[in-house]
């Protein structure tokens, strides 16, 4: 049955102030049921305070065949990482 249902990507905000993060996907016949399925599948252990679902078909993805031009040029540009700063203790979400 589920193979006939469209796929939805699920995003969960773990607590106020943090951004929604992709956690997985669910099958559901429509958006409202998708939110409920996402709730039961991904937040039953208190993982979140807010949920988004997005039709998977609406996600525009980069082309894996284009990985080289897309991502490799960044590999040797270590100076773009902010690794030369000291991060104060107690900053957990960075």
């Amino acid at each position: 049955m589920s193979k006939d249902w469209p796929l939805w990507e699920v995003f969960v905000r773990s607590k106020g102030g943090l951004s929604h993060r992709h956690v997985g996907s669910v099958h559901a016949p429509d958006a409202e049921i998708a939110v409920r399925h996402a709730r039961d599948t991904y937040t039953r252990r208190m993982e979140g305070v807010s949920l988004w679902v997005v039709p998977s078909a609406q996600i525009i993805a980069s082309d894996p065949a284009e990985d080289g031009p897309m991502f490799e040029p960044a590999e040797d540009k270590i100076y773009r990482h902010p690794t030369f700063y000291n991060i104060p203790d107690g900053i957990s979400h960075i």
């Binding site: 589920s2 669910v26 409920r36 039961d40 039953r44």
Partner: peptide
Amino acid sequence: APSVEVDLSLAN
């Protein structure tokens, strides 16, 4: 259940 998602809903 008809799908794993429904399975979880019913068990919850």
